[in-house]
Computed example of a mutant assay.
Amino acid sequence: MAFFRVTTPETSTSWLAHSASNAGSASCTAPMNSTLAMERNSTQVLWPTARIRRGSTKRNTPLHERAIAALCLAASAPVLAVASAFIRRQSPGGPVLYRAERVGRGGRHFTMYKLRTMHVMPPNAPRLTARHDPRVFPAGRILRSTKVDELPQLWNVLNGDMRFFGPRPEDPAIVHNCYEPWMLESLDVPPGIVGPGSLSYFEDESRIPSDPGEAEHYYVTVQLPRKIARDLAYVRRRTPAYDLALAVRTVLGILGIRSQSFKSVRLETATEEQVLGAVRSRPGSSLPG
């Protein structure tokens, strides 16, 4: 059985240490380390990707996607205007846009935009939204359920930070405190507005605890590994047909229709079982069964 060592580049090691110290905290059972020993298995279900590096100026989005994003942003302007009016009316005193720092391809930090759906809270408030979270105002619930709150991310696509399809970018605190080595593979591709992991999270929102603190713990210990494992199916096999399937599944999800018959769903389920099964089999794994 072969073992090999993976070490992040020297610049990345210092960046990780600096970022982790400034990213806040998250309750995780397995913090990420910059130097790790991992096992290569015959099926290559797991392999190391420690290509975290300081933010690059290279953009992730091809020109045709930026053009489509510009058209969609212009077309959605009336919807954004109406949504902004409801936000100002139901939650005055706060900004219309929610600006969230996220980690993208190769560990590059960027600002992701959303319509604000929650009342302004103190900085030490829980990062994740619980089921029936009282911080979400009525119009915000509608914006979240219809995914209208994600429309400002068209600007992120236009700006080259994101693509339409790909793994959803995570909060730096979660990346630096909660990611295990195998999860880093999800940072090999540009982040997206829609991805397999985010679709599964959208479908499983009813399982999120009502208490915000419990919701954060449930997310990082149960949902995060599942979400990233499913994203790896896309990372390893992304095609235009896969993108189309994700688009159709997103529309069906908004309409409340579960899309289990898609080939892409079966692929994601198989990848999740493979990856998480391999993780659980490793000595000292704390991943729930």
Rank of each mutant, 00 (worst) to 15 (best):
V222M: 11
R280Y: 14
Q260L: 13
E203K: 12
N156Q: 08
S12V: 04
A245N: 06
T250Y: 06
A229H: 07
D211Q: 11
P62C: 06
R168Q: 15
P138M: 08
G55P: 00
L252Q: 14
A233G: 08
W182M: 07
S12Q: 09
R51F: 07
V136T: 12
S14G: 10
G253H: 05
I254M: 12
A20K: 13
R51L: 13
V265P: 02
L71Q: 00
L255W: 08
P196Q: 05
I208Y: 09
G192A: 06
S76W: 00
A241K: 12
R53A: 15
I87Q: 03
F4I: 12
V251T: 10
A130M: 13
T13I: 15
L36M: 08
A37C: 07
S14V: 13
L128I: 15
I87L: 02
P283H: 10
R105S: 06
P78C: 03
G94T: 14
R266M: 10
T271R: 07
P209M: 14
P167N: 11
K227H: 06
G213W: 11
M121P: 01
V82Y: 11
A139M: 11
W15F: 08
I208K: 09
I87K: 00
V194R: 06
D188V: 02
Y219N: 01
E185M: 01
V157Y: 00
R168T: 12
S42Y: 12
G197Y: 04
D204K: 12
S25N: 11
R135D: 07
L63K: 03
A100D: 13
R207M: 13
Y98C: 10
K58I: 09
R258M: 06
W155V: 13
H176V: 03
F202N: 03
M183S: 00
S261P: 03
